[in-house]
Design a protein around this nucleic acid. Structure first.
Lengths: 332, 332
DNA sequence: AAAGCTTCTGTGAACGTGCACAGTAATCCC
DNA sequence: GGGATTACTGTGCACGTTCACAGAAGCTTT
């Protein structure tokens, strides 16, 4: 029992392939009579268009590839990804397009992605949380299908369009909140300094504090909870008199809380703690984290809009930066 | 500047399309001379095979669709998904296949998935955490390409192959651990009773406790942290003398911890708390959760192996059930 | 030397669709 | 009433590949 083709539908409806094709593709020149005949034939035969054959002639695949350039396994629990995936699937479905996923962890992966994209197997590329110097950006930049990123792409000559949260603003919001509270010695635990979040959150912090943002009050983590705990211990040793700490991610903040507890500091009485992301862990810690919410859904939507604009022929699109929001809970 | 086709390679190598095609598809009848000529031609022209054209004639798409049948947005942070996605991408890549993602949240989504699969756009289907009575299972069962599931599929006449953790074993491990500790009044917070995890974790709990597993000591949640908190409050009211609680997920356990703290109970001194999943939240809570680890990576691998067996023509495969492991931390 | 393998190669058909083009009939305009 | 426009339809070709088949060498067997 073979699948029905457009020929079968045409025969059943008593018209030619061309007319069926026109109806399928929304061409205006189809007579009402033909229309109803074809529609009935389609539902009778259970016809569904063969996208492969269509792709062959249109030279478009109807799919977009999302590249996960995260080397760390665990970080995929990042709500960034899940939101982006959901929104992408949903918005692509509206255009009858689909999302295919690829990994770009090591060199081999990356080569595979480039081959895939260069081979014309995708109409567009979606990058997420790319870190500085990712060779993929350069490789994808020229010639191939349009590429966009959710989250800023930094340190590349060939810049690709992106939608991102205003990382600096978020950092300023948290830091200013601490200042308003009357905190005097405000420390920070940053993310990796080759990521936009790592760099820009520190910049926002420094913008508010100016000279007060001394080196002694800054430690670096790698987004993991363990690194947050380590960095906090380090800060407590270097600057025992600190009374607030802005941690660049909720997960690292969970680690910082553990280090503070181990050191016998009360949160927020002795030390205020601020996170970033407003992820699930922010409410699972004790006390729940005061944090910065990123508009993940809108970021994802805007990213897709940029991609669609490019797919529809826009030669150039401007990056989109969305505001963050302070969420006050009990940790600070 | 058009992409080179197999014709261009053939011309450059001084052979025919057929020979190039044979080399590409690993046919044994290719002379050494032709082989080197073609390989040079390929690298000179930068040729990469057009999978669309190939699919048209082979009737295979080279892709597998993963269906996310999770209605709740948030639960996607479930490490189940991320692991499954990573492993699937990796193992598919070895076969030069790709992973496409679809959502099946509402009726419209489900219809789209069925059309897609029935339309022959995927060689296989990957289900994750399907709940009982999901109509998708029945729709995909007959006729179409092979489908497998990560996590058991229950309450369906047309059963599909799956790889899953031994949920009952995990529940028994935790419950027996509490019994060995000398806990006398052991309560449980279950997941939704239309999911394998909801049902089977309760079964394992009941197997160990027998008559002691009274209705008064059992409350139900929906996997969310808020529901865990609610269920714990309910249990404390119904059975104030409980001295241990087995919570069917780490996230709900985080909620339970909050409720216990609010009620002034010390953990684990007054009440021992056990979670399930060994997810990121398990170590972000205070105290860190004693929990049950599922072998997520192996589950994903086995799921893919089942699918590959089916793709390779196996008529029937048996479900795979993998053991869980007790991870002792400070909560119990 | 003829016949039969084995190894290798080229060729013609598909696969199912969209698109350009040609063509027909009806309507409109002056 | 003739030419131009509009509304609609059918046909051939192309997209880039795989596959079955036929055939050409070279070698072995009878």
């Amino acid at each position: 029992m073979k699948r029905p083709t457009i020929h079968d539908v045409a025969a059943a409806a008593g018209v030619s392939r061309g007319t069926v094709s026109r109806l399928l593709n929304g061409d205006k020149y189809v007579s009402p009579a033909a229309r109803v005949a074809i529609e009935r034939a389609i539902s009778e035969t259970g016809y569904v268009v063969n996208r492969v054959a269509r792709s062959l002639v249109t030279q478009r695949t109807g799919s977009v590839v999302m590249v996960l350039s995260e080397p760390h396994e665990k970080l995929f629990e990042d709500p960034n990804y899940s939101t982006m995936i959901r929104v992408a699937i949903r918005m692509l479905a509206e255009r009858d397009m689909s999302l295919v996923m690829m990994l770009a962890g090591d060199e081999g992966d990356r080569e595979r992605v480039v081959r895939y994209v260069r081979g014309g197997h995708a109409d567009g590329v979606l990058l997420v949380s790319t870190h500085a110097g990712d060779p993929l950006v350069g490789l994808l930049g020229s010639g191939g299908p349009p590429a966009v990123s959710c989250g800023a792409v930094i340190g590349q000559e060939h810049v690709i369009p992106y939608a991102a949260a205003d990382e600096r603003l978020g950092a300023r919001q948290m830091t200013e909140y601490f200042v308003r509270q009357g905190r005097r010695r405000i420390a920070m635990i940053t993310g990796p300094m080759d990521t936009p979040g790592g760099i820009q959150r520190l910049e926002g912090f420094a913008e508010v504090l100016g000279r007060k943002a001394s080196r002694r009050l800054i430690a670096h983590g790698d987004w993991t909870q363990a690194s947050g705990e380590r960095a906090m211990a380090e800060l407590l040793e270097r600057s025992p008199d600190l009374d607030a700490v802005f941690v660049a991610s909720d997960l690292m903040a969970a680690g910082a809380l553990a280090a503070l507890r181990a050191a016998g500091r009360r949160v927020p009485d002795d030390v205020a703690v601020g996170g970033f992301d407003d992820s699930a862990v922010a409410v699972s810690t004790h006390p729940p984290l005061t944090t910065i919410r990123q508009p993940l859904a809108e970021m994802a939507q805007e990213t897709m809009r940029l991609l669609f604009a490019l797919l529809d022929g826009a030669g150039h699109v401007d990056p989109v930066v969305l505001p963050t929001e302070l969420v006050v809970r009990e940790s600070g």
